[in-house]
Design a protein around this nucleic acid. Sequence first.
RNA 1: GCGGCAAUAGUCUAGUGGUAGGACACGGGCUUCCCAAGCCUGUAACCUGGGUUCGAGCCCCGGUUGCCGCACCA
Length: 484
Amino acid sequence: MTSAGNSKEVKKDEIAELARRRGFLWQAFEIYGGAAGFYDYGPLGARLKRRIEEEWRDFYTREGFYEIETTNIAPREIFESSGHLESFADQAVVCNHCKNFFRVAEGVKVSENCPECGGELEAAGEFNLMFQTRIGVPKGESDSGVKKSEGYLRPETAQGIFLNFQRLLRFNRDKLPFGIIQIGKAYRNEISPRKSLIRLREFTMAEAEVFVDPKEKNNHPRFEDVKDRMLRIVPGEDEGGEEEEESLEEAVRSGIIANEYLGYHIAKVDEFLERIGIPRAKVRFRQHLREEMAHYATDCWDAEFLSERYGWMEIVGVADRGDYDLSAHASFSNADMSVHTEPEKIIPHVIEPSYGIDRIIYALLESSFYEEQVGKEKRKVLRLKSEITPIKAAVFPLLNRDELKKKAREVFQKLRDASIFVEYDDSGSIGRRYRRQDEIGTPYCITIDYETLEDNTVTIRERDTMKQVRVPIAEVKDVLLKRE
RNA sequence: GCGGCAAUAGUCUAGUGGUAGGACACGGGCUUCCCAAGCCUGUAACCUGGGUUCGAGCCCCGGUUGCCGCACCA
C-alpha cells in the first residue's frame, strides 16, 4: 500500500457522507423518520460486509473450526440461566443533581439519596438491554404459560453455541479441544446509541467459542506459530496499566496474559485485523479492569482501534469465560456438560474471540479514506485491501465511441463470466470514471483503447498509484486475482 | 435518559413572514487518445404533527433524527 505523502485530514463527516452517497450505509427506516441505532447496508456496504465475513470465516475455518447457525430468538429461561436477565433487567434510578445512574440491584433505592453527591434520586425506568418478545400465543395467566411464551432477542451469538454443546462435543467425537464459530445478528436495546456504527441496537457479531480442558490452557498446540508476534498491550490494574510492546511469548510467560490459549487467540485477532487492512499502528490490546468485566468473564482483552474521530474504541473482545456458561446451563437445564478425560470428568473452559463486524467496517472505512490533491482536483480514495473491496475492477472504453464500447463490453462480460465482480462505465470523461471508482475503493480500472483493437491488450490502472500497465486481455484475470 | 445545537434537491448549502436560489453530483447530447476539463440540456428539496398569521422554509409547542457534553455500554 502506498500513501504517497498525502494529507490525512479527514473532515469529520466525510466518511458518513461518502458512505451514504455511494451506497454503503443508510439510516434504517429513513422515509419514516428513522430510528436511532439501526442502519441498513446498501449495495456496496453489503458487499464489503460480506467479503469481510468471508475472510473471517476462511480465517477460522483454517483453525479447524466449524460454523453453526443458531436462532436469534430464545425463550426467557435461556437468559435466566446465562445470567443476562439478572445482569441488566433491573430498575434504574438517576440522580437529579449529578445525573449519576444507579441500578436498583446495586442496593440503591429511589427513597434514598444519591450515594455520590447526596442529591435526590428519581426512577429512570427499566434498565433492560435485551429486546423482549412473545413466542406463540400466551396461554392464560398461569406461571408456566407466561414463562414459555416470553422470549428475548439474543444479546450475543455465543449462547446458541453453548446450548448445543453436547451435540457439538459428540460431533467432535467427544474430544477436546474444539472450536465453533458463528456469524449473526445480535440485539441490544442501548439507552443511547450513537456514533454511527459504533453503538447499534442491531448489529453483526462474529464469534468463536473455543472449548478447552482447563488443564491444557497453557498448552496450545500451535503456540509456537504465533509466539514471536509483537503486540501492543495495556495490562489491567494488577499489572500496572502501562502500555507496552512485547512479544506474545513474553506477555504469557510473565503472566500479563493469563495462559497460552488466551494469548494464542489474542495473536490471531491481531493477525486477522492486519489481514483485512486495519493499520497495525492503530491497534492495541487492552485488558479489562475487574469492574468493567462482563458477568461471565474471568479475564477479557479488547482489541481497540484508534479512531481519529472517537479515540480508542473496542472492535474485538477476547474473553476467558472459564466454565461459567457450561456450568450455568448444566445446573439450570440438568444437561451434563462435562467431558470425560483421563483421569476425571471436567467442565471445559471457553476462550472467546468476539468481533463486532460493524465496528470493524467503520474502522476500515475511516482508516482507508484519503483525500489528496491531484493537479487542481481533490481525489477521494478508499485504500481498502483488494480482497475486500465491493468491486474488483471497472472496465471503461477510453472514449465514448461504438467500436471501443463494443470491445469494452466484451472484456466486461468475459470477466463477469469468470465470476469476477466488475462494473462497466462509459459516462463522462475517463478521469471522472477513475475518480468514481477511487472513492469506492475499486483497486483496478481496465481501459480499452485503440491499441486494444489492434493487439488485444488493455491498460490496467492501479488505484493507489494511478499507474498503468498494459497487459494482454488473456492475462487480466490473473492480475486481478493476485493476492497482495 | 438529561442538557445544548441543528434539520432546505443525491451531496453541500443560500434564503429572518410574501415567486425556494446556487454549487457539486446525476441523466441526455456534443466534445475528448488516460485522471472529477469544456459547451448545451434535463431531473431534483423546505424532517414530521400541531399552533400563531391574510400568508410559515423562516415564529411558537410536541415528536423524530443527527452532532456535542454528561450518563449508560451487562
